[in-house]
Design a protein around this nucleic acid. Structure first.
Lengths: 121, 121
DNA sequence: AGTGATTTTGATAATCATTCTCATGAGTGC
DNA sequence: GCACTCATGAGAATGATTATCAAAATCACT
């Protein structure tokens, strides 16, 4: 892991929540370190494909990233306060794959997100 | 409702599934009708704010739209040709509700969509 | 129908996140 | 030091979405 790449992950770790690629880029620059957007995106892509970070999208389509060391999972998001709960859903994974297979689809990905109001809200 | 606007909704109705704004635009043009991207987006935005259409986003951030007064179900969508298969998923419904309840969430809705390449593509 | 006012349209330009390109630089082994 | 590989990052390219704005359609009223 190169220095540039660990800056990206370190930034995410320090934030402890969701950040956009652009925010990460600016944050690293503000620390005086040299980096480029391409590197940030590359690192994030690789980390996402290795399930090191979680990706989700804001309403306007911008991607947000967060460190997640718990493998593939989904989210339960409070639509009021933004609180998120990570969900284990191996049942859903299996279901998605079998549905895809029985319809002749390949390279299947899935989106499963739950929304609601948490206890406080 | 103007003629242009109903073309957009009619296209969605005929498709019965998710379409991107770009697909809708091209589909209307292929029918020989005159339209512009701006109009398609405007119509879609308004319809979304009035809860006439559902919006969700593919992995790459592109927005997909669907008329949303049809009964609740999910889709398996070909990311290449746009073919959609409707999926019965009562198992997923139950799972979503139980997950929500065990986390103290109320008024839960969910987004479950599968993407992949169909046999032809 | 005529007229002036208001709304809608759609071609085009602008924006913004993301990806691509490629010359440069850093690191590694010999 | 030297050759070689691979990551880097500046800038260009891409693609969806949004803003602009003049022309066209529609409306309200006579």
């Amino acid at each position: 892991m190169s220095k540039s790449q660990s800056s990206v992950l370190a930034t995410l770790e320090k934030a402890g929540g969701f950040l956009s690629a652009q925010q990460i880029f600016q944050s690293i620059r503000k620390q005086g370190k040299s980096t480029g957007l391409a590197t940030v995106y590359r690192t994030l892509q690789k980390a996402a494909s290795e399930n090191i970070v979680d990706v989700l999208r804001k309403d306007d389509g911008e991607a947000l990233y967060r460190l997640c060391d718990t493998g593939h999972h989904h989210h339960l998001l409070c639509t009021n306060c933004g609180k998120t709960v990570e969900i284990e859903a191996s049942a859903v994974e299996k279901w998605a794959n079998s549905v895809a297979k029985s319809n002749g689809f390949k390279k299947v990905t899935h989106v499963v997100e739950l929304f609601g109001l948490c206890q406080k809200c």
